[in-house]
Design a protein around this nucleic acid. Sequence first.
DNA 1: CGTCTCGGGTCAAAGGTCGA
DNA 2: GTCGACCTTTGACCCGAGAC
Lengths: 395, 395
Amino acid sequence: MTGGGPSSNNSSQPEEVCLVCSDISTGYHYGVPSCNGCKTFFRRTIMKNQTFSCQFQGKCPVDKSIRCACRHCRFEKCLQVGMDRNAIQQNRDPIGYTKRTRRYPPIKKVEASDECSPAMVSENDRSEDNFLTLLSSTEQKCCALRLAEYMPSRTLIEAVVSDCLLTDEVFMAEHAILSPRHRVTSLRFANQSDYHYWHERDWFVMIEWAKTLPVFQSLPFTDKLALLRHSAITYPSLVHVFNPPDHGLDTIVFPDGAYFDRTPEPTRPLGFNKKKYQMLDQLLKPMRSMEIDMTEFAAFKAIFFLNPDADDVDSNAKKTLSDGRSAITNALYRYMVKKKGAEDAGDRFGRLLLLGTVLATMAVEMKEAVLVADFFDQIQFSTFAKQLLFGIKTE
Amino acid sequence: MTGGGPSSNNSSQPEEVCLVCSDISTGYHYGVPSCNGCKTFFRRTIMKNQTFSCQFQGKCPVDKSIRCACRHCRFEKCLQVGMDRNAIQQNRDPIGYTKRTRRYPPIKKVEASDECSPAMVSENDRSEDNFLTLLSSTEQKCCALRLAEYMPSRTLIEAVVSDCLLTDEVFMAEHAILSPRHRVTSLRFANQSDYHYWHERDWFVMIEWAKTLPVFQSLPFTDKLALLRHSAITYPSLVHVFNPPDHGLDTIVFPDGAYFDRTPEPTRPLGFNKKKYQMLDQLLKPMRSMEIDMTEFAAFKAIFFLNPDADDVDSNAKKTLSDGRSAITNALYRYMVKKKGAEDAGDRFGRLLLLGTVLATMAVEMKEAVLVADFFDQIQFSTFAKQLLFGIKTE
DNA sequence: CGTCTCGGGTCAAAGGTCGA
DNA sequence: GTCGACCTTTGACCCGAGAC
C-alpha cells in the first residue's frame, strides 16, 4: 500500500475511528474520518435540506450504539467534527444500478460474537446446538408416548436392551396416540394406585428416552443400569412437575385428573409427606415460576441424568458422561442467551442448574429403601419397577 | 439469475412465507423470512421486555389466522425459527408524522459490545459486584484465621451470637498470624486426630465467616443453626480442597503436612473410605482442574451455604436466602464473563454450579448419624462440634 | 492501465406511525 | 391497551470519476 493506507497505519492503531460516532471509519468523508452511516446521514440531511430538533437539551451523546437516537445532535456532531457541506455535490449523473444479493445468506451469523473475530460459530457449537434441538423434539415424542395407552410388560433388562420405541416411526404412528383414560375429565385426589400408575408409565418412558441419548448408548450395560437407578425417583418427579396440566404453583395434576397438593395426609407415613412437600416447594414452585420451555426442560433432564457422580458408575464412564453433560450445558446456555438475552441468561442458567442440588438431595434421600417403601406404601411393583428401584437379583 | 426480481425468481416459487405464521413474508426480518405482523410483534416484545405465559400447554399452533391467540407461543415460535434478538436496535429518533410519539424504556444492551460505550452498569449490578469483591477479601481473612493459633472454646450458641472476629481489626491484627504448627515441615499420613483438628478449626472459621454475610445476619437464630448444620460437612471439605498446599489432583494436604489420598484404609469403616473417595474424585479433581480463583471460590462457598432448601429452614427465610444467593450467582457470572470472556464463561459457570450436586449429595449422606460416626470414628468432639453436628440438646 | 479514495446511488431491513 | 399495513430512515454495498 502507499504509506498512508488507512488500515496499515501503525500496529497500535489498527483501525481509524469515526469522529462522529466512534464506529470503525471507512475512510475520509467530507473531510473527516467517518463511518458509512454517518457519511450517508450527513449527505442525506444536506441533500434533503432537513432540519431536526432535539427533544432534550441538544447535548445527546452520539455513539455507535445510539447514534440514531437523536438526529439533531448527530448532525450537530457532524458539523462540529468538521464535515464540510461544500463537499456535497448537488447533482450528478445517475449511475447504473445492480441488484444486490440477500444480506442474510441462509447461514445466520447470530451469536452476537463481536465483530473482531472471524465470528464463525464453531463446528462443535453447531453440532451441540443441533443436538439440543433433537433433545427437544425427542421430548415431544416422550409426551406423546406417556399419554398413550401402550404399556409393555417386560423386565428391566429387556427394556434396556430392546430397540428404542421413540425412534421407531411405525410404532409411534400406531401407538403414540392419546388414550381416552389420560384426559382430565374431573379432578380427584390422587390415591396410591395413581402414584403407582404414573410412576410405572414414567419409568417406561424414561428408559425409551434414555436409549435415544448417544452417550447412554455408548455405555456398558452396568453403567446404564446405574444411571437409570439413580434417576428412578427424580425423573418421574421432573416429568410430573413440568408437564401439563398446569394448576399453579402448588398443585400437581396427573394427565388423568388425579392430583395432589400441600394438603397434609396424616394417614400416610412421614416420609411420604416429606417427599411431597419437597417436590412441591423445591421443584414445582421454582420450575413453574421460571416458565421453563420444552427445550430447556429437555436439556435439564439430560444434564442431570448424565451424572458422572451417580452411584456405581464405573470410573471409565465418568469422562464420557462429563463430556456429554458439558455439551448439553453449553448448548443450553447458548440457547438461553438467544432467547433471553445475555443479561438474563446468566441468571436463568444459574437458577436452573442450582435446581440440580434439589434433585441430588432427592436422589440420595430416596435411596434409603425405607423411604421408597414409605412413599409407595405396600403396594406391589411390577417386576420391572422392583428391578429398577431395588436392583437386579444377581447383584 | 440476477436478472429476475428479488422474489419473482422462478414462477414456481412465487412468494416466500413467514416461518412463524406462514403468512406471506415481506422479506427477512431479524434473520428470518417473516411477515410484517410477526416482525413488529417480535420487536415490540423485546423492546418492552415483555413476558407472556401460555394458558394451555405451550404448544399452541401459530398460524396466520390465529397468530394472535397466544402471545407466549407466538414469541416462542419466533425464537424457535431463529429470530435474532441481537438484531434489535436501540430507540431511534421519532420520525414525527403528526402526533406525539411513544418511547420505549432505555433498553438494556449488554454483551460483547464492551469496549465501545460506557455501558452503564445498573446500580444493582454494581452493588452485587462490590459484594463479590468483599466476599473475596473476607475469604483471605478466613485463610489467615484458619492458619492462626487462636482457637476459642465455646458452645455453638456462644459462637453464633458473639461478635464477628473477622471484622474485628484489632483482634485480627493481634491473632491472625501464622502459627508455627500450621506449616508443612514434612508430610505424614493423616490420622484420626488430624481430621478432628482441622474440622474443628474449619467449623470455627465457618461460623465467623457466616457472620459476615448480611443475609445470614438477617435470619432468625434457628435458621442460622439450620444453615450451619447443613454445611457442617461440606464447608470443611470445600476448604480442604481449595486451600493450599496443592499437591495435585488426588491428594489433600492439610496446612501442617498431614495428608490423605486414594490409598484405601481397610481398617477404617466403609463409610469413611466412601467419603474420602467422593471428596477426592468428585470435588478435588474437578475443582483443581478448573483452577478456581479466590473470588470464584468465595462466591461458590456462599452460594451453597445460602441454601433455601436446607433442612429445617423456615419457609419465611427461603425467599431471603434465594435472593441473596441470586445476587451472588449473578455477580459471579459477570465476574467470569470479565475474566474469561462471554464464550467460556457459560461453560465455567455451569461446571461450577454443577458441583453443587456433589455438595448436596455429600450433605444428605452425612446427615445419617452413622456416617458421621464412621467418618470421625469414636473420638470425642468438642461440645461445640457435637452441637453443630447433632443438634442442640433442647431440640 | 491498474488501483485506491471518496464522491453518490441503491434497497433490504431496520424502526416509527396510527387507524382499526 | 395490541395489531399490523404502511410509512421513513438507516447503512452496507455498489458504481464510477479522478488522482496517483
